[in-house]
């Protein structure tokens, strides 16, 4: 069973990404790209299992966010780790739209980004390579103090010091 790092724990990952060529949505917890999610919109209300959607960093999140907020999982794809757009999208989901479900990083992000990603509201990390998840979890704790407001900290340091 594939694994994912979620809420600081390494757990089995039940979410199955839908193949690009798939003509139907199989049973179970499926992860669809935003386009697939739109294409299959008629089947989904009767789907047996959970549905999550993968969005890209360039998503016009303001325009598409409404229906996503009801999903248990929103994944944000990193085409490469240096593409930092997903950091902004996650913060918007958490702080502006008050999304409470799982926000999962997928794609090309790297272990050394975990601390900042988690600050922006990501709570699950699905590596696309064979990164050791137990070791990677250490990087979530690189810092114990921080200056700024973010998804994980309501007040900047100057309101706390």
């Amino acid at each position: 069973m594939p694994q994912v790092l979620k809420d600081h724990c390494v757990i089995e990952d039940n979410w199955i990404p839908l193949e690009a060529s798939s003509e139907t949505v199989p049973e179970g917890d499926v992860l669809l790209t935003y386009n697939q999610w739109q294409d299959f919109s008629e089947q989904l209300p009767t789907h047996n299992g959970s549905v999550g959607v993968i969005i890209e960093g360039n998503a016009e999140i303001e325009d598409i966010v409404e229906p996503l907020l009801n999903l248990p999982l929103i994944a944000i794809n990193f085409p490469k780790f240096a593409d930092g757009r997903g950091f902004s999208i996650a913060r918007l989901l958490r702080e502006r739209y008050n999304y409470q479900g799982e926000i999962r990083a997928v794609g090309g992000f790297i272990r050394d980004q975990l601390y900042l990603l988690s600050r922006c509201g990501f709570n699950a990390f699905k590596f696309s390579d064979d990164t050791d998840l137990t070791k990677a979890a250490n990087s979530l704790q690189d810092f114990s103090e921080t200056y700024q407001v973010s998804a994980d900290e309501e007040n900047p340091l100057f309101r706390r010091r």
């Binding site: 930092g84 900042l116 200056y147 700024q148």
Partner: peptide, 13 residues
């Protein structure tokens, strides 16, 4: 300086 130091959102501009 403090605001920008390890700003969580802006490390990969």
């Amino acid at each position: 300086r403090q605001w920008s130091t390890m700003h969580p959102e802006f490390a990969f501009l």
